[in-house]
Design a protein around this nucleic acid. Structure first.
Length: 921
RNA sequence: GCUCGGGUGGCGGAAUAGGUAGACGCGCAGGACUUAAAAUCCUGUUAUCCGCAAGGGUAGUACGGGUUCGAUUCCCGUCCCGAGCACCA
């Protein structure tokens, strides 16, 4: 920034000021005194931000003949702390891409909104009594102001807020769709529940292949005589939104359910009260129905391997077999799941989970007391505790099973190292080939029988550890002897199926998605229970969140909504509701009730609310048509915008938001609302920006850098460029306050390509080849860089170009005009200002991206690095079209080359055209 | 423990097909302009050795091997850092 002119003029006035103060005044007065000839970012940025709003520059239309591009940021949760410089990193990158695509003639959808329901606002409400809606609105205002001064090109007319009833009525509507659909595994898609009912009434469960927890079987006749209540209970096993009985962490003292991370060593994090595991009924979504499709879809999307891997891991598909083990002297059997049926001849005992259903009835009289005592203790251990302590404990049940392949009796134990929620809750233990089973066998002195050995080797007996490698050979295993593991697995399954002992089976780690929270600040369920307890879907949406007196948990495990009596108690005669098995009461009006005014058909609203991820699972669809009151988005809008082309956000949502969004998208695809079944084609995870001290940027460490301050000191364009310059987008890197000076200086130099000594200096001279080369190599590099999300190298390319043009004293319009356009996505304000100074009247952001012309980049000679035995010794320039033989001759004649060859004979001469020469001696 | 990333100057980082390692920026050192400061501009900056200098040698991309005329880049092994998963049978 050149302030020499005015500083000498003002010097007497400010000569007494301390240095730091002095500098500030310089900055402040510079533009004011010199008019617009010096780079006054504050004035320029404010001016253009205003003009862009006035002209609606970034508003985007759904009706366009242009090709579409949809670039999306993960919308933020508007916390009270506002943004620090780490937050906008991804927004800047996506904004550059959005602008780049517009300059390429795309109709770009680039929206922003707020994930506004959630716990922090509610916690704050509990503390201060302020309504979460109020604090949320305040926080959003702060976020918006901070986003605005960064110069982002969002179409704010499309903003969404998940806590807005006009938005969440569609979240509720989608829930209703889940509720009224089931998953048909034959068709491999979701279908309406009424079709399921039709099937039941005609064929029972015959010929049905549905996603449901238990394989229910009944005939049409049996179904048809069921009461509505019974029918509803049956349907609950099929609905994609259903009431699920799951184990939760229950804290009696606090009177609430706690999340896993709120429980430490079996007691509550707050207060240290005991926490027990308790079965509780909650709404859940049947995500497991989509497990295979969620896996398969990963192969079709452009995400990082690590996120895909996390999702694969989370879904946890494993192939194996389910095998029956008959109980000795009893007609019943125990079923186990195993991925290693090849080791079955080595199964020397069995283990049941403490929560195993029917455990009490199974064990022997003598052992029952000990088993139940152990099971009770294990049940009350928290998950965390159970996982942290892996020493093996357990009790013998007193009964034996028969190994179906060896025919020998093996003991059945109970231990908490077997999880109730996975597989059948029972395992066959093969201590020789499974580490956990080995530990258990060692602890209780159970027999270890090896049946797999490494090829060509013998196992060292007794075994010191389990041999679990999958590349061994079977022995001691009857018909499997001599087979390699992979073949033996297939053979064993085949044999089990043949003998009706079991069947091939695929298991998943993925659990049904718990969808209820005992909280206030979330979407209410559009559900009212009738007097039979049958859930009815409210047909008039939105079901608005009522005002409450207190946001505190009720202590009964219910949400604060339960205390709002006149909301909870609903008159089903007046509210249209729906459930496939209940005839709406409105169709059988009760004359007596009408005349007396008493509520004849009372209902009770669901008082849980939806979890935080409900609204965020589909928000990217709402942006396409945000004000539609008839549908979550019109078919035309959905058809035009389709999936998100580029999604930018943090990697921390790998198993939450990103999985749920994929699930909801597939579901809506099944219902023919969408023409695509993956929401985000390309996903980029930006890194974190840490504090200068290397710590995480947080209030706690006092290292938070506020973008407002950086913008005030250096301008938004500088901040944008600097965040991009810091390093690769996807890397985590520390902030460096000094580093920003470099970028700030760059913009000053760039400005001085247009202004020399604050005088307009742009000329209409024809550019030289050298200048054209600088321009076109920059265009080429920046184009490649943006397409590959390598923004840091783009900034460096701009610096190189500016330095080189500065050295050539190039102020030529033809060069600078195109250079402005390629810089515009990074620094939208300064480029817009200079663009208008060049005499353009329309926005630079509507210009066309210049194509680089290869002809300006063509070299006719190249200075070859000459290596002798791979070490560069000299450089010799040759024309690029020079004959290889001639180059060789010239190189060999070179003095330096001769010196390094030390008279040794030439072994090989390597010439890579335009790259390198290597002389091997 | 398993899986996936990653290790390059004092620092952030570059090297987009295996082809001149350290672009660009920060910091640092020196210089120009100035009475002075700020701003701006210029020069140098991997280490080490030889030389007054010009210049030149050697080593060098975590470590040890390998493939190749040539390796930061490909392969094998080791160490370290980060992220995720974790008694899932």
């Amino acid at each position: 920034m050149d302030t020499s002119r005015f500083s000498s003029a003002l010097q007497p006035v400010f000569s007494y000021c301390p240095a730091g103060h002095w500098h500030r005044k310089n900055l402040y007065f510079r533009g004011f005194i010199l008019g617009m000839s010096a780079y006054n970012f504050g004035e320029i940025e404010k001016k253009w931000q205003q003009k862009w709003v006035e002209s609606g520059l970034y508003r985007v239309d759904n009706n366009s003949s242009k090709p579409k591009y949809y670039v999306l940021d993960m919308f933020p949760y508007p916390s009270g702390a506002g943004l620090h410089v780490g937050h906008p990193l991804g927004y800047i990158a996506s904004d550059i891409v959005a602008r780049f695509k517009r300059l390429h003639g795309y109709n770009v959808l680039h929206p922003m909104g707020y994930d506004a329901f959630g716990l922090p606002a509610e916690q704050y409400a509990i503390q201060t009594g302020q309504h979460p809606a109020v604090t949320t609105a305040n926080n959003i205002a702060t976020f918006r102001r901070q986003l605005d001064i960064m110069g982002f090109s969002y179409d704010w007319s499309r903003e969404v807020r998940t806590c807005d009833p006009a938005y969440y009525q569609w979240t509720q509507w989608i829930f209703g769709q889940f509720f009224t659909h089931w998953y048909d595994r034959n068709a491999d898609k979701a279908r309406p529940v009424y079709e399921l009912i039709q099937h039941f009434s005609l064929h029972g469960t015959e010929g049905l292949n549905a996603a449901c927890p238990e394989s229910l079987q009944f005939t049409a006749t049996e179904w048809n005589v069921l009461s509505p209540k019974m029918k509803d209970e049956v349907l609950n096993n099929y609905r994609l939104a259903f009431i699920n009985e799951t184990t939760v962490n229950w804290c009696e003292e606090l009177g609430t359910v706690l999340a896993n991370e709120e429980v430490v060593n079996g007691v509550s994090e707050r207060g240290g009260y005991p926490v027990v595991r308790k079965k509780m009924k909650q709404w859940a979504l049947r995500i497991t129905a989509y497990a295979d499709r969620l896996l398969e879809g990963l192969n079709r999307i452009d995400w990082t391997d690590s996120i895909k891997e996390i999702q694969r891991n989370w879904i946890g598909r494993s192939e194996g077999a389910q095998i029956q083990f008959a109980i000795e002297n009893l007609p019943s059997s125990i079923e186990v799941f195993t991925t290693r049926p090849d080791t079955i001849f080595g199964a020397t005992f069995m283990v049941l989970a403490p929560e195993y259903e029917g455990l009490a009835g199974l064990c022997s009289e003598g052992q029952r007391e000990a088993v139940m005592a152990y099971a009770g203790k294990a049940r009350n251990r928290s998950e965390i505790d159970r996982m942290a302590d892996t020493t093996k404990t357990g009790v013998y049940t007193g009964v034996n099973c028969i190994n179906p392949f060896t025919g020998k009796p093996i003991p059945v134990w109970v231990s908490d190292y077997v999880l109730a929620g996975y597989g059948t809750g029972a395992i066959m233990a093969v201590p020789a080939h499974d580490e956990r089973d080995f530990e258990f066998a060692a602890a209780f002195h159970l027999p270890v029988v090896p049946v797999i050995k490494p090829a060509g080797e013998e196992l060292e007996m007794p075994l010191k550890e389990a041999f679990s490698a999958k590349d061994g050979i079977c022995f001691n295993s009857g018909f499997l002897d001599g087979l390699p593991v992979r073949e033996a697995i297939q053979r064993a399954i085949h044999e089990a199926e043949h003998k009706h002992l079991g069947k091939r089976k695929i298991n998943y780690k993925l659990r049904e998605a718990g969808f209820g929270r005992q909280r206030y600040w979330g979407e209410p369920f559009p559900i009212i229970y009738n007097t039979d307890g049958i859930p009815l879907l409210a047909e008039e949406l939105p079901v608005e969140l009522p005002k409450v007196e207190s946001y505190k948990p009720t202590g009964t495990g219910e949400s604060p909504l339960a205390a709002v009596k006149d909301w909870v108690e609903a008159d089903l005669d007046k509210i249209p509701t729906f459930n496939e098995v209940v005839i709406p009461s409105s169709q059988q009006p009760d004359k007596e009730a009408e005349s007396t005014g008493t509520v004849h058909n009372p209902g009770r609203r669901e008082t849980d609310t939806m979890p935080g991820w409900a609204g965020s699972s589909w928000y990217f669809l709402r942006y396409m048509d945000p004000h539609n009151a008839e549908a979550f988005a019109s078919p035309e809008a959905l058809q035009y915008w389709k999936q998100v082309d580029l999604y930018v956000g943090g990697a921390e949502h790998a198993t939450g938001h990103l999985l749920y969004s994929r699930f909801w998208t597939k579901f809506l695809y099944d219902l023919d609302y969408l023409s695509f079944d993956e929401p985000f084609q390309k996903l980029v995870n930006q890194g974190m920006i840490g504090g200068e001290d290397g710590q995480k940027m947080s209030k706690r460490w006092g290292n938070v850098v506020n973008p407002d301050d950086v913008i005030a000191a250096h301008g938004a364009d500088t901040l944008r460029l600097y965040e991009m310059f810091l390093g690769p987008l996807t890397d985590s890197k520390p902030w460096n306050t000094h580093g920003i000076e470099g970028v700030s200086r760059f913009l000053g130099k760039f400005w001085r390509l247009f202004y020399v000594d604050d005088q307009w200096a742009v000329t209409d001279e024809n550019p030289t080849d050298a200048e054209l080369k600088i321009l076109h190599k920059t265009i080429k590099k920046v184009t490649w860089d943006i397409e590959n999300m390598s923004f840091n190298t783009s900034v460096s390319a701009f610096m190189v170009a500016t330095n080189e043009l500065g050295q050539l004293k190039c102020h030529k319009r033809q060069i600078l005009k195109k250079l402005l356009i390629v810089l515009a996505p990074f620094a939208p304000h300064i480029t817009e200002e200079l663009w208008h100074k060049l005499g353009n009247t329309d926005s630079i952001h509507k210009a066309a991206w210049p194509a680089h012309e290869e002809k300006y980049l063509v070299e006719n000679s190249f200075s070859y690095p000459i290596s002798i035995n791979g070490k560069t010794r000299t450089n010799i320039e040759f024309p690029l079209d020079m004959d290889a033989a001639e180059i060789e001759k010239a190189v060999m004649a070179d003095e330096t080359v001769q010196r390094w060859m030390e008279g040794k004979p030439l072994k090989k001469f390597i010439l890579v055209k335009g790259r390198i020469v290597n002389v091997v001696v």
